[in-house]
Write a protein that binds this DNA or RNA. Structure first.
Lengths: 259, 259
DNA sequence: GAGTGGTCTAGACCACCTA
DNA sequence: AGGTGGTCTAGACCACTCC
């Protein structure tokens, strides 16, 4: 008989249950995708209140081990393949394939990739963007494009691009249809900006409530937040892109020479 | 008078309170470091149960906006400077300064940086490490070194390095005292492995319970998980390092040519 | 000792899914 | 309709901090 406080350990009941479930998951007894017993069942079995069970499940959900689905149950989060974007996504050799690296990665993993243009507007850039693009403090007119990338039916990345207005003006950058998503770099080349270097600044954080909605994020999943700056052969920045990526479905890779 | 369900909005009380506190924080009415009213106060003021207040605070804590301190109160998480490690940390020009980039970054921000050797052992590498080091499936003897990096009194990074045994054997890599932490690359050069390229694979996730303890992580803070491979002038990998970093105190930067 | 957050209980009702 | 998770209540006691 498992008593509520049999051993002397001063461990809260919710943590004990969480640890029990966690090891069941890690040992494979509860396989990825499997359904946990219902909260009411667990409460009865362990002779604890349902709220205590919920606390235990919350602990697991926060560390990304399980996902609760309203009306259906709590499930072990299935291990998912990671779409890893590399710095080679900017390599010229990709430009000719007509497929963006994101779509290539999706294809490799048997997923249907697509993207969607959410917004194209002329606007003022936020200060950190303006600074990185070396825009003068007042003359701040940029083109802003916003996209979402999907893999199967999951929105995986939210992508915002800022382009100084003088560079964007009069180009297909103003239209929905740039052809393929990184075809935009072909347009930059025509305007005299060939990519020579990239500068990527990377952080991770929990999503804002907005991002939680937009990316349909389950609890316990952080986002990768990447600020990418494209730099031309003159050493000047000409484009800045911010990627906000679901960290459970995506990652990054940098393969670079030591200088 | 703010009634509990004055407007018709079907928004749970906990979310309403969370939104209210969130906007107070974002507007600056509750400054970073400020203490929120106690849970019991908030409950009374809003005429809701204390548990409902706790739910609201949990929402904020999960998104990293506030931190609860047992016995003291709930505080707006102070904005903290980020220690951003760049790929230039491997640049030879740093090697001469005798200061590792981590310590340099700390100094820039007026923090006291230090590191600590936790463990040095000869062991079998995990399969993903072996694969990246191109080790034959069975002959798997590597040196494993484990360090922690501190900024002031916060452990910021947990760093594990694996080195094929033939390379490490008979070198100061086996001792605590390699001099400065990235002085290890000087040793590799003496053994004929000069760093030509790096390959960094980056992900983000919630910490395991272990990491939560080791890095003293508050709730709602993810970790950056970086697998770094050093590649020599022959194109061969000779060292692999895994960084597990607090994402609220650190980040990454890659400044690389487009190839 | 007073005040704070952390855990827990035993209920209630709501919202969602499956059938 | 019946089962599931989501929200909420009104209490209780514990553990920690600060005075």
């Amino acid at each position: 008989m498992v008593s509520t406080d049999g051993d002397g350990a001063r461990v809260p009941a919710s943590e004990r249950l969480a640890a029990e479930l966690r090891s069941a998951i890690e040992s494979g007894a509860l396989a990825p995708g499997a359904k946990l017993p219902s909260e009411r069942e667990l409460a009865e079995q362990h002779r604890i209140a349902r709220n205590t069970v919920r606390q235990a499940i919350r602990l697991l959900a926060e560390s990304g081990l399980v996902v609760a689905e309203h009306g259906r149950g709590v499930f072990v989060r299935p291990a998912t393949a990671v779409i890893r974007l590399g710095n080679d996504r900017y390599s010229p050799r990709y430009r000719s394939t007509g497929l963006s690296p994101f779509l290539l990665e999706c294809a490799k993993q048997g997923k249907a990739g697509r993207f969607e243009v959410l917004l194209i507007e002329r606007t003022k850039p936020p200060p950190d963007v303006a600074r990185r693009l070396k825009l003068p403090p007042d003359d701040e007119s940029v083109l802003r494009r916003e996209n979402v990338f999907w893999a199967d039916n999951d929105p995986v990345q939210r992508v915002t691009t800022w382009i100084p207005w003088p560079i964007a003006e009069g180009t297909p950058l103003l239209s929905d249809d740039v052809g393929h998503p990184f075809g935009i770099h072909g347009i930059f080349e025509e305007r005299g900006h060939t990519m020579a270097r990239i500068l990527d600044e990377i952080g991770a954080r929990m999503p804002t409530p907005d991002e939680r909605q937009n990316l349909r994020l389950p609890a316990g999943v952080p986002v990768l937040d990447v600020l990418h700056t494209s730099i031309d052969t003159e050493g000047e920045p000409y484009e800045l892109t911010r990627f906000v990526m679901r960290a459970d479905l995506s990652g990054l890779r940098y393969d670079a020479p030591v200088e």
